[in-house]
């Protein structure tokens, strides 16, 4: 049963990734749709951040260390454009504030 579940999920997740790449292979994208797609990357990343910081019941599972950590990471990412530096800034702030309070 577990094998079946893994196989079904594998087929399903591959199909979700491949579907539009194949379905729209010869489709002429109208400018409006192309403009809409420019927003997909920033909005999905934003939505993922919030979903990682909330419980399945919908409550925020983040305190001051998390909040300040994310702000510092965002600032470091914007100013340096370097993900490693953003990670160091975010985790550093998170651990530092967590140790103080």
């Amino acid at each position: 049963m577990i094998t079946l579940a893994i196989l079904l999920t594998g087929v399903g997740s591959y199909a979700m990734r491949a579907f539009f790449i194949f379905a729209l292979a010869r489709y002429a994208f109208p400018p409006l749709l192309l403009r809409a797609l420019e927003y997909v990357a920033p909005t999905v990343m934003a939505a993922l951040v919030i979903s990682m910081l909330t419980t399945p019941e919908g409550e925020l599972a983040a305190g001051l260390p998390e909040l300040l950590g994310l702000i510092c990471a965002a600032f470091a990412a914007k100013t340096t454009g370097n993900h490693i530096l953003a990670l160091i800034a975010g985790m550093g702030t998170f651990w530092l504030i967590g140790a103080i309070i």
């Binding site: 939505a47 990471a73 965002a74």
Partner: peptide
Amino acid sequence: PVLFVSLMMAASDRRDKLAAAALAM
């Protein structure tokens, strides 16, 4: 989440994209 914030900032090369990200949050 720290990495995804960093990726969000990298993907928001215009102000309106950042606004869209804030709205999505």
